[in-house]
Design a protein around this nucleic acid. Structure first.
Length: 200
DNA sequence: AGCCGCATTCCGCTATCGAC
DNA sequence: GTCGATAGCGGAATGCGGCT
């Protein structure tokens, strides 16, 4: 994989190169867009808008290796803009209702009972905590990228995730895996197993 | 090629602060 | 008092260059 080379080709106007870059991560893009839009049509719309933006602004990207975090930041901001325009951006007090939407049949995450349980658990967090945790453990994005996406300081993202995990732990009735040495938390482990992002 | 040490980056955690 | 935001610390992971 020569990411930087592909990005440079795309920056020179090579549409094939840009297409290749997008295809490699198309599933990740879709899942990310879906997690915000909650339906296939809007997720596809957001992805289409992202591709247009990428094509227009690719010259501004300085580090080729940062292409995917940069493009995902664009996608998330586009999703939020669409939601705002539709006046559907979910305010804090409505988050529980939205959690039920997340369990509809076309949700790509709703595969098993335990995944549904995790969605229910996540629905008890604040919107911002849930967003940060989903971006980290569902979409496997680094803290800095999440901070960029959400326009929040890095420390704030760390805090949201840490406190969100803490809440999940208490909701799960204590920590099955935690111990005195401070190893990986039960809730965190649960999330990582759900999403396949557990590191070996 | 393999090992070692150093530097950098990333992450988890927590103390502190301010708003309510 | 509670909650969320912020900053900073320490440990783990990773990258990289030098040496054998």
């Amino acid at each position: 994989m020569h990411l930087s080379r592909l990005v440079k080709q795309a920056q020179k106007g090579n549409k094939e190169a840009l297409l290749q870059l997008i295809i490699v991560e198309q599933d990740a893009y879709y899942r990310l867009a879906y997690s915000y839009m909650r339906n296939e049509h809007d997720a596809m719309d957001a992805m289409a808008d992202m591709i247009v933006t990428l094509y227009e602004k690719l010259e501004q990207l300085q580090k080729g290796e940062a292409f995917y975090s940069w493009s995902k930041t664009i996608l998330v901001k586009r999703c939020k803009t669409i939601l705002r325009n539709k006046e559907r951006f979910i305010p804090l007090e409505d988050e529980r209702e939205s959690s039920h939407d997340a369990l509809t049949d076309d949700n790509p995450y709703r595969n098993t009972e335990s995944e549904m349980n995790m969605q229910v658990l996540l629905s008890h967090l604040s919107v911002r905590q849930r967003e940060a945790i989903e971006l980290r453990y569902v979409h496997d994005l680094p803290y800095q990228t999440i901070a960029d996406m959400t326009d929040a300081p890095l420390g704030t993202i760390k805090s949201r995730i840490s406190q969100g995990i803490h809440k999940l732990k208490s909701m799960m009735g204590g920590d099955r895996y935690d111990n005195d040495r401070g190893e990986i938390t039960g809730a965190q482990t649960e999330l990582e197993y759900r999403t396949g992002t557990i590191r070996t």
